[in-house]
Design a protein around this nucleic acid. Structure first.
Lengths: 226, 226
DNA sequence: TTTTTTTGTTTCAGGGATGAAACAACGCAG
DNA sequence: CTGCGTTGTTTCATCCCTGAAACAAAAAAA
């Protein structure tokens, strides 16, 4: 189980954070101060650090700076927590190496979404690999899509939709599942919007659009097999 | 029909919520207070609770805490309703286990979207394994059916019917039982409709349709043995 | 055998689900 | 501010699925 280190002096907030993290399958390590955090920073290292900007003693910015200077911890992403009205500090925070920041208060959903986003951004997994199927090639790095070496144009949503499909083939997804995975969990659009994007994507795909298949009553599926 | 419990003291808001829920196919149970809610909390349990944060008597947070401590209700997801400006309470609410928050006012669309999102998150999608019998393969994940590796086309009902049969082999089911299991309870469909779907399924299955067997006077059975 | 019951098959109408297109809203670049 | 591109919503058309009825066939009963 992945560890996440919380550095926060206010007990209620710290415990709330720990609760949410544990609810979502992480192991939460709690520290009230930087000194305490130091003693907890050992193997296995946390995959992420939640760092309050306003701490007694050293400020969050100073802590972030130290963490980023240490070879052992420099690659651990940091999310800074700031109170409302401290937003101007986000710039400073990002300058010294924080990977994201959140303004208190925030919802659990937002917290988890940002954590996942940061981890996704930091972990250069195979997600960046080009994908291919029946002459259809999608390259996430260059953000290009070709059909039989012919370039085709896609809007951002169409691109994400196709990328999701190509990395999750031979599986039916309902419209709601597609909204969750492609549009994101915090967006509220109509189910039928999926149909429209499917149609736009099919139109752009030309003669390989039969890989996007309608499963009546269930949703859509991407598959090489017709 | 799934029940959703509303705990909200202000009548206009409560009725609006109930209206929207019923428009969307849920049964709305209304309670003005926690005490009233308690008396309504019996089988069948609601699938979700909409809980106003600001209630006379016990606060929504206290209620949520109680609900989460009771084994019978701890698994029912809770969406807290807060007024604008109460956002700092998000953290406290989450601490006791609310699953999402909505800030009033909100649109019916947002309401339904969040409800669906929460229910989707809570409901663990059963891991469905492919099933096989005498060269007939049904894969729930890709929603595909093949006979000797040849793809066959089925309508949604035929697919569900076959899936049910293959996961419950060697057992006779009456038409009523099949209607309950495949069509779902509370359906107003003639018994003989089953015959028609059986016929369509047999037709689509080709040379392995002898696995669907008629048991005269009783119903139908799926079995590898002829 | 004849009659009755049960099941198989076909046909048809209605409705739901999807495709297609037009429209509106929105952000963004110039 | 304006124009353009992208996205979301709505509307309309179409197709397919479904359920019921009617008739045929088969099995069981008399």
């Amino acid at each position: 189980m992945n560890k996440i280190l919380i550095i926060e002096d206010e007990a209620p907030i710290r415990e709330m954070l720990a609760f949410v993290l544990e609810q979502n399958g992480y192991e939460a390590i709690e520290a009230k101060s930087f000194d305490e955090a130091q003693s907890l920073l050992l193997e296995p290292y946390p995959v992420l650090i939640l760092l309050d900007w306003m701490l007694p003693g050293a400020s969050g910015i100073q802590i972030a700076k130290q963490l980023k200077q240490n070879d052992l911890t420099k690659n651990i992403p940091i999310i800074m927590l700031t109170a409302r009205g401290e937003e101007e500090d986000k710039i400073k925070g990002l300058e010294v190496g924080a990977d994201d920041y959140m303004t208190k208060p925030f919802s659990p959903k937002e917290l988890m979404a940002r954590i996942k986003a940061v981890l996704r951004r930091v972990a250069p997994t195979a997600i960046e690999e080009p994908v291919e199927a029946n002459g259809l090639v999608l390259d996430p790095v260059s953000h290009r899509v070709t059909v039989h070496n012919e370039k085709i144009d896609l809007g951002p949503t169409e691109f994400k939709l196709l990328h999701f499909f190509m990395t999750h083939p031979d599986r039916v997804y309902s419209r709601e599942q597609l909204l969750d995975h492609v549009w994101g969990t915090n967006v509220y659009v109509e189910d039928r919007t999926v149909d429209v994007q499917i149609r736009r994507l099919r139109k752009a795909m030309g003669d390989v659009n039969n890989m996007i298949q309608t499963v009546r009553g269930s949703g859509y599926r991407f598959s090489k097999a017709v």
